[in-house]
Design a protein around this nucleic acid. Structure first.
Lengths: 110, 110
DNA sequence: TATTATGCATTGACAGATTAGGTATATTAG
DNA sequence: CTAATATACCTAATCTGTCAATGCATAATA
């Protein structure tokens, strides 16, 4: 079962921030992690991912630096800022609230 | 706390279908019901609501008829079809799945 | 040597949501 | 009486995040 993108929409930023709270990481790795954590059902579209990096960088939630790989493709590492940590916290809280409201709204009895 | 519209996006159709599973209803009433059930935190934008009615009608998930009100503004009542019931069921299942996946993706530890 | 995996990035199109506007009737406050 | 509010419907233009398609480059594998 594939997740409809409209259901995941709006969570992209929070998902990326959650990953970066664990450790600095780069696009490809983050996407593979998402695929793994979702049990193979969900993978961010690359364009969506890089658009999100841009958005998060502009917002001051993440910074980046180029990795020092001697072999293989170059990697652009992202690092979460203090502002980013606070934003993640807000998003996580908002998700918990929204989740319950949607549960209520989708129920057919009280 | 207001729900970010991007978090509710994609649930509009399911929310409306859930309401219509209880009884036939009309736009204004559905929206007030959503406001009430969400504890006053969420109300569909009218344009969003009427766009959704159009979409659901086109999809064959709902039908409508004009109410027989003798007084007050006229009401357009919507009724859920069998196809609509099946669609609701799929959406509800998809939500349950997606909810858990998002919980996983937003977690910062295993 | 051709394919797959790793890795970054942009462009144009699309769909659902918002903003802003419109119409009309009934009730309530001043 | 009359202005404001609540009830009730609807649409056009615009915004925003996502997707499909495409491009570039290196390393490992078949």
């Amino acid at each position: 079962m594939t997740i409809a993108s409209d259901l995941i929409r709006g969570h992209t930023d929070a998902i990326i921030l959650a990953h970066l709270l664990r450790r600095d990481s780069y696009g490809y790795e983050i996407n593979k992690s998402i695929l793994s954590k979702s049990g193979g059902t969900y993978e961010l579209n690359e364009a969506t991912l890089y658009t999100a990096f841009k958005r998060l960088t502009d917002a001051g939630y993440i910074t980046f630096y180029w990795g020092a790989e001697k072999i293989g493709a170059r990697r652009k590492y992202y690092h979460i800022t203090q502002q980013g940590r606070e934003a993640y916290k807000r998003m996580q809280e908002e998700w918990q609230t929204t989740k319950q409201i949607i549960d209520n709204l989708l129920a057919t009895e009280d």
